[in-house]
Design a protein around this nucleic acid. Structure first.
Lengths: 181, 181
DNA sequence: AAGCGCATGTAAAGGGTTACATGATTGC
DNA sequence: GCAATCATGTAACCCTTTACATGCGCTT
């Protein structure tokens, strides 16, 4: 159900085609809410059937841009204000960590180093993006401000996971250095 | 695919029935990797068909406990060492935050306060659990140590999200107090 | 004219949730 | 005997991903 509202929300910023939306989902939302184009096109049609969006313009190569309708705006506002928040995380790295005890110390070490690298890199990327926003490179329109907030969460979460992975590797009995117990 | 390995990993700790596993998924993994019993029973049968687990014992009320086989242990070890890590997050609260600009300031305020409360509570719950582990209430067996690591991640993530929600409400133009601009 | 990127779609399969259903055992 | 809990399962549905497919328009 969330993709539906993701699309509505993006369209609330202005008209866009399925292709545009797919790109934005990939670029901005890739790690937060992945969505592939088949799902996007299908959902757009359902949104149009329900009268929440309508065709805005048609361009070359069958390009079809949609714009949000009044009831569409009402619907996403309703969702934001009344809809239940889903707090599910479903983080595979955490599921894996439950089974660290099954891993060879060397493999675990390697795994954790990679995780630190991955999440540090992610944190840096998002930080850089946040800085550009803060320098006003994208303007100060409301949608940009909200995106700044989202990016802040991404920064904090990847930072937290990087720190955690570092903590975990220190917390493990170091490989090749059996405890002096 | 991850549920498969989740089940294998839990069975690596010792024999358990589908019912046991469903409870453990709910209690421990509820927020990290939710799984409902129909999926669990189905997956258990597939694991048995593939020879990765086998029936350990049968009890009252058709209870069937499974134990992991040697190839099952090999398979989860292989996954842990070689399988690709999926770093997808898919956090609905972050998707929502992209659209904060569409919300009435009052609704947003209320939403963020609830989020702070929710994640603080979650952080506290996990912290309490971590403390009990640290006091040795659950022993010091390897699976318990790994679980301690997982819980640490849960604590840090919920803390990060609680902090973020607090930051976000301060970052928003406060409702009813228009800026002195 | 060739190749790339734009732009949309279908089909199949996989993964997960919800609703429905059933029967056995335990505790009161 | 009754209610609660244990324990398993089926069916339908929804959401998502992957693979396959097609054709247009722009650039070189």
């Amino acid at each position: 159900m969330s993709l539906r509202y993701g699309l509505l929300g993006l369209l609330a910023e202005g008209p866009a085609s399925g292709y545009d939306l797919a790109r934005r989902f990939q670029e901005v939302l890739g790690r937060i809410w992945p969505a592939q184009h088949p799902k996007i096109y299908a959902e757009l049609r359902r949104l149009a059937d329900d009268g929440l969006i309508e065709v805005d313009s048609e361009g070359p190569r069958r390009r079809t841009a949609y714009r949000i309708t009044e009831s569409g705006v009402a619907e996403i506002r309703r969702w934001l204000a009344e809809g239940d928040v889903d707090h599910t995380m479903r983080l595979q790295p955490l599921l894996r960590s439950l089974f660290f005890w099954l891993m060879e110390p060397d493999d675990l070490d390697r795994h954790l180093r990679r995780e630190v690298e991955f999440y540090s890199g992610m944190a840096e990327q998002y930080s850089a993006y946040a800085e550009r926003k803060d320098r006003g490179e994208f303007g100060t329109a409301p949608p940009v401000q909200s995106m700044r907030v989202t990016i802040e969460a991404a920064v904090r979460l990847s930072q937290a996971l990087a720190d955690w992975a570092r903590w975990a590797s220190e917390h493990q009995p170091p490989a090749g250095h059996p405890s002096t117990e």
